[in-house]
Structures are given as structure tokens and as C-alpha cells.
Amino acid sequence: MTEAGFALEELLIARMAKEYRGGRMGVGATILADLSARLAKALYVPDLFLTTISRAAADPQIHAKTFSDEWALDESATMALGWEEMFRLIAHQKLQIWIGSVQIDRFGGSNISVIGDWERPRAQLIGARGIPDDLWGCETLNYHIRKHTPKSFVEKVDFVCGFGKSPDLGSVGVQPAAPGVVISDLGVFDFNGADGAMRVVSLHPGVDFAKVQEMTGFELADPGPDVPVTEAPTAEELHIIRNVIDPSGMRRLESNEATPALFNELWARELQNSKAGADASRKAASC
């Protein structure tokens, strides 16, 4: 918690929530991004179509985030969204997504597959997953980079899962996504710099450009002294985050205090709550 009365995670959720538009899917592939989609639906985009870890519980009402959303959203989900239908929706560009990338580069290339050489990587990550597909299903791809370091903000990604600005694609039938907004623990960035390079949009409270440049693996244009400060979450946003969409504090799992002990603590509380909920509904049913 900062002196300002909110945590960095809350600022990130509120800022990410500003990027969703209505009548489409809103997907957050990190915990904070998932919460941002819920916050957007609660306050700004009531017809946002949410899908969570389980497509079997798609288009639910606003609900607190849990480890087991399939259980939590069962009552309020509208439909099971099959993966084939989801990919047809992607073909019709009905996806908006915040992707948690491990590397992002100067022109918006992204990588969640390998660090180092693909044939024998220094670090094997999770595989390209949906990024090559999302390129053809979004107007823009937004990225949530949890830790801003010279290893995550790189001149050129080690493996291109998502291409950035102006890829050389030849004759294609559909316009692919452009890299959109990048948010890290230091600031907000986009790709409207010179030649489509990454540039600073705003810096989070207490962060100066020298720090950002030091933690970035390529040269960024200096935004000057009038660089905006990322807007603080409003009282209303903080209320929704703390009391409606994340009362148990799942957002702490993407803070610096995340440990296996925190996982266990949040999980124990969730199991206790679900048991209390089940007991209450049994009691109600027997009345």
C-alpha cells in the first residue's frame, strides 16, 4: 500500500480496465488482467463478455475471483463456450485480451515460448499458446508485463510468438492486430513512437524516466518533464476491487509478496468460504 492509499496492483487493474470496449469478449490472461475485465464490466462496459479459466462458465455476471471459477461462476454463467466457437469469434475479431508476456520488444514482438535458442533453450517457458492466433483476432494486443527489467523489455524477442509493428507478411487477406498498450510495474507504454517504436504513455506514481530507461533493454525516447503520471484508481474502483471482484485478495499473488504460503493461505480461505456457502444453501434448502 502506498501513501496514496492504494496498492500498485489496484492501480494496474484500474488502468487495464480502461482498454475494453463493449459487445466483445474481454479476457485477461494474468490475475490482474482478469480482474481488470471484471472491473470494466462492473463500471464501464456492462455488456462485456467475460470468459475465465473455464470456457464452460462463459458470459457470467460480475463475481469475485477465485482459484476455482468453474465452481464460483456455475450459477451465473450463461453458456459453455466451446473452443471451436471461440476461435470463430476470434476470426471475427471479437476478442480483446491482455496477455502476460515474458518478453516484449521495441516494436511490440512478444514471447512466452523460450529464452535463448529454441532447440536447446536456456529457459523453457510455456509455449506460444494463443498468441499467434490472437494476432488474427484482435484489433490490438495489449500486454501486462509483471516485472519491468532489461530481460523482459528487450531489443528483440528470442522467439516470435507475436509479431509487432509492420511485419513483412506479404499478401494477406485480413489485417492482423497491432501491438496496443503495454503496462508494467513502472509505467504504461504504446507503440506510437518514431517508426512505431515503444514510447512512454505515463509513469506510475513515484517512478521517474531514468529508472524506466535503466530497466529497459533498449533506448526509449525521453518523454520530458511533463510526462503524465498514471491515473490513480478512484474510490469507486477501489471499492469494486476490494469488496466485489477480489475480496479475498487474489491480486496479491501478482505482487512482490507472492509466496507458496500466500497461495496456501488464500486457498484455505476459499475452501472455508465455499464450505460455509454450501452449508448455508443446505440449511436454506431444508427450511
Binding site: P132, F159, P167, D168
Partner: peptide, 9 residues
């Protein structure tokens, strides 16, 4: 498919 175009896959 269009998926994979422009990527290292």
C-alpha cells in the same frame, strides 16, 4: 489457416 503467419512457429 492464418495462424502462425509472421511468427517463428
Amino acid at each position: 489457416s492464418r495462424f502462425g503467419l509472421g511468427t517463428d512457429l
